[in-house]
Amino acid sequence: MSDKIEKHRDGMIIKDKNSTAKMEVEINEVKTEGDYKKCPVYIYHDWCKKCGICVEFCPTGALASKPDGSPYVKAPEKCIHCELCDRLCPDFAITGAKR
């Protein structure tokens, strides 16, 4: 994984070594709970404003909030890939990975 993907942007497009996409910016750090297989939803914490909408409207309860209000993937196996958190996030801070 680390060979192929140099810069891993949590919540956004992941930069591939061979990618020619020009719209990408560099964001170095990634902090998600578990790796991609375990984590169907990427949360980009730099843009998150902790409004709580994603946690509230997650239909299966896969997301939960930490004591400071920031969301994390609590139960990745519950995720049904509906992408509602992705659509309802006002800050473009969540990417729902497709199955």
Binding site: I14, Y36, T95, G96
Partner: peptide, 14 residues
């Protein structure tokens, strides 16, 4: 491995 792509970001001045 499938790479998640957020198409929204194509149109943003992010």
């Amino acid at each position: 491995m499938k790479i998640p792509q957020k198409r929204v970001h194509k149109f943003l001045r992010h």
